[in-house]
Design a protein around this nucleic acid. Structure first.
Length: 409
RNA sequence: GCGGGAGUAGAUCAAUUGGUUAGAUCAACAGAUUGUGAUUCUGUGGGUUGCGGGUUCGAGUCCCGUCUCCUGCCCCA
């Protein structure tokens, strides 16, 4: 750290070297393709927002976790930690002219100032899918189906993950059925969401603090053992539609999925790797009051957030850590400066034919050229020497089979 | 925010209780090899041991601080 200057990226921020971009592109390509295949329209937005927009929606705790600063006119600005407030702002601004339901998608870089752990950085890319203005559970099915499609496009097996689904509405009804009044539900959700992370005794204490009697607390724990969702029409219908769509094998009812954010009102879901090795791959749910918080009209929506960090770790674990990029393109090299023009001419010709060509920038000995071409990701290589120029043709070698074919210079 | 572990060549790791010039294997580069890659042989370069201070005749090794990474907890995109 010479002179006190660090030459590392700031804590939690990421550099993407070419070998990292192989993975990132694999993930992003799957996001884009799956979004397009499911009819979602791409949109994008500024990375910075007014601090108040982000802080208001996210809640008091998260306000502390925002990267924020004052610009030169003392405007309070923050880097977005999630896309939902931005989406709400954009939709509300054109609410009168847009045709609902909307199906929008984006890959958004988001920032959050907090402690890092495995699968969690201070900066990440989050693929967002939102369907706005549709009450039918088909919206949930379409969103989850698209996410499953993306996982398949990345190369994961269907058996590598499970999407755990529940419903806050259903859970609320069960609680109400045990005599726990609706005004206590928010507190109960918060406490029950801690199951598995905190000992039951502490959760019971939280529930007691929330105003539940001992009997009600006991009832709440009993409800969390619920394995059957047939009493919930929306969940039943959702599983049926998933069956029709062909991905019901990856869904599982899990009353324990609650999600921390308070704005979810209906079905909620989280995707985990089957081995239980990683954090949630994606998550989301239905939130009915998105637009009202920023002055829009009440609109039901389903949203899904899918970060790039965890899924990339999962992919590397399941597909192998070695580069999975396929070979493609042609490497063109030459022996002496006299063959440089011929090499450039051939490169230009191949490129005009649609080939990807990596032209050597200086003369090389054949051994070195082929050695480097072989360890690069080129599929073919052609090396031009004096004899080739004299003859007017060169040999293009397939680097995996060793086969050679003539090509005119 | 709290706790634990770790930082030595580009990479993975050695280095006796604190003791000579910090080594090895890969990788890179060069040569054997002036016309076609992964073998082989030979050679070369590469380090302020994360950074700063302290103890000592002497510190990669011990102490303090700091930075970074990993790993639990808290929290959640």
């Amino acid at each position: 750290m010479a002179g006190g200057v660090s030459f590392e990226p700031p804590r939690g921020m990421r550099d993407f070297y070419p070998e990292d971009m192989v993975w990132r592109n694999r993930v992003f390509d799957a996001f884009r393709a799956a979004g397009e295949a499911a009819g979602f329209k791409p949109y994008d937005a500024c990375v910075v927002e007014n601090y108040d927009l982000l802080a208001r929606k996210a809640g008091e705790e998260v306000g502390e976790q925002l990267y924020h600063f004052f610009d030169k006119s003392e405007r309070h600005i923050a880097l977005r930690a999630e896309m939902t407030p931005t989406l709400a702002r954009m939709v509300a601004a054109r609410q009168k002219e847009l045709q609902f339901p909307l199906k929008w998608t984006t890959i958004a870089q988001c920032f959050r100032y907090e402690r890092m752990t495995k699968g969690r950085k201070r900066e990440h890319y989050q693929w967002n899918l939102d369907i706005i203005g549709e009450d039918s559970v088909l919206a949930e099915v379409e969103v989850i189906g698209a996410a499953c499609d993306a996982l398949r496009r990345m190369g994961l097996a269907d058996s590598d993950y499970k999407v755990h689904v529940s419903s806050r509405k259903f859970l609320g009804e069960l609680l109400a059925g045990s005599g726990i009044s609706a005004d206590k539900h928010a507190q109960v959700f918060l406490a029950l969401d801690k199951r598995g992370k905190m000992p039951d005794s502490e959760i019971a204490a939280m529930l007691g603090d929330g105003g539940l009697s001992d009997a009600e607390t006991e009832a709440a724990f009993a409800i969390m053992e619920t394995k059957d969702c047939s009493a919930s029409p929306e969940l039943t219908e959702m599983f049926r539609l998933a069956e029709v769509a062909g991905f019901a094998d990856r869904l599982v009812f899990d009353i324990g999925v609650i999600r921390g954010l308070s704005y979810y009102t209906g079905i909620v879901f989280e995707c985990f790797d089957t081995a239980g090795e990683f954090r949630a791959v994606f998550g989301g749910g239905r939130y009915d009051n998105l637009l009202t918080t920023i002055g829009g009209e009440a609109t039901s929506a389903v949203g899904l957030g899918f970060g790039d960090v965890v899924v990339t770790e999962l992919l590397k674990a399941r597909l192998g850590g070695e580069t999975v990029a396929g070979r493609k393109g042609v490497a063109v090299g030459f022996m002496f400066p006299d063959q440089r023009d011929a090499a450039l001419r051939l490169a230009a010709k191949l490129r005009s034919q649609g080939e990807c060509v990596d032209l050597a920038l200086r003369e090389q000995k054949p051994k070195k050229f082929f050695s480097r071409a072989g360890s690069s990701c080129a599929a073919k290589a052609v090396f031009i020497g004096p004899d080739d120029v004299a003859k007017g043709s060169a040999r293009i070698k397939d680097l995996s089979t060793g086969e050679e074919t003539e090509v005119a210079l």
